[in-house]
Design a protein around this nucleic acid. Sequence first.
DNA 1: ATATAATTGAAAATCATTTTCAATAATATA
DNA 2: TATATTATTGAAAATGATTTTCAATTATAT
Lengths: 143, 143
Amino acid sequence: MRRKEFEVFSEFIGSKGLRHTPQREEILDIFLSTEKHVSADELYKLVKKRYPGVGYVTVYRTMKLLSESGLCGEIDFGDGILRFEHKYGHEHHDHLICTKCGKFIEAMKPEIEKMQDKLAKRHGFTPTNHKLQIFGICRKCKL
Amino acid sequence: MRRKEFEVFSEFIGSKGLRHTPQREEILDIFLSTEKHVSADELYKLVKKRYPGVGYVTVYRTMKLLSESGLCGEIDFGDGILRFEHKYGHEHHDHLICTKCGKFIEAMKPEIEKMQDKLAKRHGFTPTNHKLQIFGICRKCKL
DNA sequence: ATATAATTGAAAATCATTTTCAATAATATA
DNA sequence: TATATTATTGAAAATGATTTTCAATTATAT
């Protein structure tokens, strides 16, 4: 499993004239093995557990490569910490963020997407991507 | 003019047991006099021009108060810089951000808002506010 | 094998924002 | 009005996430 993601990465590395290194493989491995939205710091700690030799900076640099290659997406909830989510084979989605417990839900409504395109067009704007974050209280926290 | 905003601020200050200071009035004055979405740094420079005595930190602190009082809204475009926009008497709006020139358009579509509420409800989520940013190329940059 | 150029990791730098703290100023109260 | 109380100020230092620097190391091409 995860074969495809490694292939994508390998292709990306090749096409850019970059090099395959154990660190890059290790970081990708750990990133793919967690389903959470990890910050660079969290990821670094996870990587460190299994591959103690890997440095902080290399994690940052590698996550940038993964973003470029389309394997990960960067999410910014406005708390000053950049988080990463799996992107390969994942559909676009918006985020419902609970301001009480900090957890979030991924959700999507095709009608919203369509309307956004309409809104953009109305203003002569050619959209490439968007971010929709809905803040509020989740079911659990409301109880 | 701007009477109302000063009233709101005065009321906020009073209700919180805070104090009226010339610096706070001056910063609010400058903030209201610019229609741009200013960063704290930009605002500091503007304030400095007219009221040289005001310090950097006071601008930051005052903007926080203005946010709390509902007079300004904080916007985070994900570039690491927090910007402020007028909020009093302004309707909620989304942002169309041009990734080429950096300019943005404020826009709104009530249907989108309604659908967002539906999406939230579907997930047992009670929304309080949201941020929608559409990135792309503006009319001018496409020419 | 060797040369070349990319990559690494540690430490230092950056940059926006926040905290600290002593001096000052606004308000409440005598 | 004078005074006590407590909030506010501004400068400098601290913070915290991310980036850069740089010499040593390592992957790949020849």
